[in-house]
Amino acid sequence: MPHLATYVGLADHSEQTLADSLRAVADGHAHLADVFHTCSQLAGWSDDHRERLAPVVRRYGEEDVAEPERLRADALEYPREGEVGLLRDLQDLHLLATLVHTTWTVIAQGAQGLRDEELLEIARHCDAETSRQISWFETRLKVAAPQALIVTP
């Protein structure tokens, strides 16, 4: 099952990328209390997903891919400034979370095929929380957009 290991590795890496990016956005927009606290909270969820996945990583191994840059997305290291910057940062988080979400979808399919109930339960649980992360990005984008686009000095 060489490619399942690839995707287990991708899930682990993508969750880490998302967690790192969430923390970068939290710090970059720390003056917005809800962005700071919610992004920090959601980063904790991604940390938890990696912990849940750890035993599976031990079982299947993490494939050492030849060209990881072809597989993985980069973290958002440098958050943008201002209200329009926040919009763009939330869009990046949305993209990264969507990668996580579809990665869990792929893994859940693999777990079904293998009848690996442990992995299936992990994939379902984590994916449900990833969807909640995505919902928050969408909600916050909708709230911030009009003021950022029309009135911001």
Binding site: T38, Q41, L42, R132, S135, W136, E138, T139
Partner: peptide
């Protein structure tokens, strides 16, 4: 809403 995050 999601009571934990406030997502609608």
């Amino acid at each position: 809403h999601d009571l934990a995050t406030g997502a609608t």
